[in-house]
Amino acid sequence: MEDFFRINGTDLTVCVPAELDHYMAEKIKRGSDRLIENSNIRRIIFDFQKTCFMDSSGIGMIMGRYKNMCFMGGDVVAVNANERIRRILTLSGVYKVIDIYEGSY
């Protein structure tokens, strides 16, 4: 479980698993909210390096973390997204509020 998360200063990197569906979205939501409560996080980096599947539950989870970060004056970025994941991020409109970087951050 903890393997999904890495904290570096005020950055929280979420290593998104191979499939980000309803089941995994709930896990990441709970885990990241607990870390944000206990540490001073100002940026969440979603790393899609290993990810080949995402549905709208993933979008809901990212938007939820984005709202939390906005509230705390931080931001959210996405890195290493393949073409499929980019398409989902674009189709959902999430790309308008989070920055998507080509390679790693």
């Binding site: 809901g60 989870m61 939820g64 189709l91």
Partner: peptide, 13 residues
């Protein structure tokens, strides 16, 4: 509960 409201839109897409 952080539902995005995109489910049917994705199915149609």
């Amino acid at each position: 509960s952080e539902r995005s409201g995109m489910g049917f839109a994705f199915m149609e897409a």
